Simulated scan of single mutants.
Amino acid sequence: MVWYWVTGIVALLVGIVAGFYIAVQYMKRQMANMTMSDEDIQAMARSMGRNLNQKQLARISRQMKNVNAKALANQSKKKK
């Protein structure tokens, strides 16, 4: 009788850990493939109460492209 409880608890813990790991990997992959246009960035900034000028918008776009490029490079290294 005790083994049923132990097996159930162990299975639950393994499921939680595996589910968390899978979710993190999925989100990393989605974030790496995400691209945002200047209009999307501007809309997001406005929703947070900020108004970006062209220089700030260009800097944020450039940073996002650099992050995406690094993420893609890391993914290709992991596949090898």
Rank of each mutant, 00 (worst) to 15 (best):
I16F: 11
T35P: 00
T35L: 04
S47F: 10
I22N: 05
R29K: 11
R62M: 12
S76R: 13
V2Y: 05
K79N: 04
A58M: 09
M1H: 15
V14F: 04
S76Q: 09
D40T: 05
A23D: 05
A11Y: 06
F20S: 06
A45E: 04
K55S: 04
M34S: 06
Y26S: 02
Q30D: 09
W5I: 15
I22C: 03
K65Y: 00
G49M: 08
K78G: 11
W3R: 11
V14P: 00
S47C: 02
K80F: 11
D40I: 04
A69G: 04
A32D: 00
M48T: 03
L13C: 14
A45R: 05
N51I: 07
R46S: 10
N53F: 04
Q30F: 00
G19L: 04
L57I: 12
F20M: 04
M27E: 10
T7W: 08
R50A: 13
G8A: 09
L57A: 13
I16G: 00
Y21S: 08
A69W: 02
Q42K: 11
Y21M: 09
S76P: 03
Q25A: 14
N66W: 13
N68G: 03
Y4M: 11
L13H: 03
V2R: 12
M1E: 05
A23E: 14
I22H: 06
Q42L: 14
D40K: 08
N66V: 11
K78E: 10
A71H: 00
R46A: 08
V24K: 11
G19R: 10
I9W: 13
K80P: 03
Y4V: 15
K78S: 14
A11M: 10
K80W: 07
A69F: 04
I60V: 15
N51Q: 09
R59K: 15
I16K: 02
A71F: 00
R59Q: 13
Q25G: 08
S47E: 08
R29N: 04
L52R: 00
K28G: 06
N68M: 05
M1I: 08
A18M: 01
N51W: 09
R46Q: 15
R50M: 14
N51D: 07
Q56I: 05
A71I: 01
A73Q: 15
V67M: 07
K80R: 14
R50V: 09
V6C: 03
R62K: 14
I9A: 10
I41F: 06
I60N: 05
T35I: 03
L13K: 08
K79G: 05
A69H: 01
L12S: 05
I22E: 01
A58P: 10
E39H: 02
V6H: 01
V6Q: 08
R46N: 06
K79I: 03
N66D: 15
N53G: 03
G49N: 00
M34K: 02
V2E: 10
A45Y: 07
S37R: 10
K79P: 00
Q75N: 12
A45I: 01
V67K: 08
G8I: 07
Y21P: 01
R50P: 05
A11H: 02
L12D: 01
N66Y: 12
Q30K: 13
R59G: 07
A69L: 06
K65I: 10
A73F: 09
S61K: 06
S61C: 07
Y4P: 02
K70D: 04
A58D: 15
R62W: 05
A11Q: 13
N33C: 03
K65T: 05
S76W: 14
Q75H: 04
